[in-house]
Design a protein around this nucleic acid. Structure first.
Lengths: 236, 236
DNA sequence: ACAAAAGTGTTATTAGTACACCCATGT
DNA sequence: ACATGGGTGTACTAATAACACTTTTGT
């Protein structure tokens, strides 16, 4: 049985994949292999298949491009203007993914001609992908201010200077390192490791990792209008 | 021209319409007039038409049901499990709307048998509408903690006790009225009116309204990790 | 006169901000 | 020995939280 007299529409997911290289935020783009806009830069996307949900499609597509799974991913608002794809109407469900840039390995046969671009120097993108990226960035800035999600962009072990550089980069601002250290440690989300990272200084900076044991209880160390413990965690 | 060998899918928008009656949060539901699940309670929804965007579809549907336009509305995550509608695959784009319950007038011919239900006593809903409502509520709780959006649920003129009841209701908590008053007034978002509302006490409570002049500058009177002026406004 | 809801201030505690020097190490 | 980035403490200010009495007025 079917609903009668209704228009069926192509639905695609597009993956907005952010990484951080220690200095800049990067976006992973592919060079389109098919018309329209062949060879133009684009987000990695694909059509939703009959037996999969949008989340599953996004995971499939991300895996295809990066080889990664179990990655931080979140759907944002659909893009649905009828004329957004010149070939045929397509509704796009954009997913924002945060990945550790070092875990990404171009597939042996680089089918998609993928490349990381600094978000400050993005090429012209097809369709409305530019707007998707801007929306995604805006949401990332918002969310990262209240939730410990930027860790997704870093290796399992990272240093406080690295973490601080990430916050400074995202908000294009300078943060006092004494205040930053005090605040980040007061969340009790981090565990100090014994080893140091000597790659960026002679003295070396201690590694930290997420303290899995305390992670859930301390997830919500933030806030304002409503008493902290009233604000639901994990929604957006 | 068309993309070949791809599956096209029905796409619907569903409207999650919240109101507040002074005591309880209400959800506007309709009694479905067609199969499947005829006569069961459901969110108001409809399929996206060929020449409209999802936003336009949501406005159209909300107008059809409530007669209202220019209403606070926001799209949340798509629901896309292949089997969510037993008749045929349908991807749902849920929209959350906040309306002043007093502005809502059942259409003269009540085509949809709409009714307000307290969110504490919702009937069983069709498909995954229950999950949509829960997601919407969770996002509303989150967002209202940082953004002055609950005003959408109130008439243009409202009293501080009414406003406080709204916050208390949403978070199911008690707030000290001295602290609440001080805080809400310190945002400079409100303008005190000369008249009082005498409907709920002998003494009467002063009306307030949104101070349109100062609204934009003072929108972001909130926050934590990142300096206030770094956090983008208007994203979620 | 009294019941019922509105309105208002002070104090203590906690969180945020601004700021500068010493430390460890590789060269 | 020195240059480079890492690490730490203190004092001031602002925000939050806890708390109770007086005001107005319809009945």
């Amino acid at each position: 049985m079917k609903y009668s007299n209704q228009t069926r529409i192509l639905v695609a997911v597009d993956c907005i994949i952010f990484g951080f290289d220690g200095t800049d935020y990067k976006l992973l783009l592919i060079q389109r292999g098919f018309a329209p806009e062949k060879e133009k830069w684009s987000l990695m996307g694909g059509f939703i298949q009959p037996e999969e949900s949008a989340d599953e499609a996004a995971e499939r597509i991300l895996k295809q491009l990066t080889g990664l799974h179990d990655v931080y991913m979140e759907q944002i608002q659909a893009f649905s203007k009828p004329e957004r794809d010149p070939i045929e109407r397509v509704i796009a469900l954009p997913y924002v993914a945060l990945i550790d840039i070092k875990k990404y390995q171009a597939q042996i046969n680089d089918d998609f001609h993928a490349r990381w671009f600094s978000i400050k120097e993005l090429p012209k993108l097809i369709f409305d992908h530019q707007a998707m990226v801007e929306l995604a960035l805006s949401k990332l800035r918002y969310k990262a201010a209240f939730h410990p999600i930027l860790f997704e962009l870093l290796p399992d072990k990272f240093t406080l200077p690295q973490l601080q550089a990430m916050y400074e980069g995202l908000y294009d601002t300078k943060i006092d390192k004494r205040n930053f250290t005090r605040k980040i440690l007061s969340t009790n989300l981090l565990k100090k490791e014994k080893e140091k990272d000597k790659s960026s200084s002679k003295k070396g900076a201690f590694f930290y990792s997420l303290d899995e044991a305390n992670y859930k209880e301390n997830f919500s160390n933030f806030h304002n209008f409503i008493p902290k413990n009233e604000i639901p965690v994990g929604s957006e």
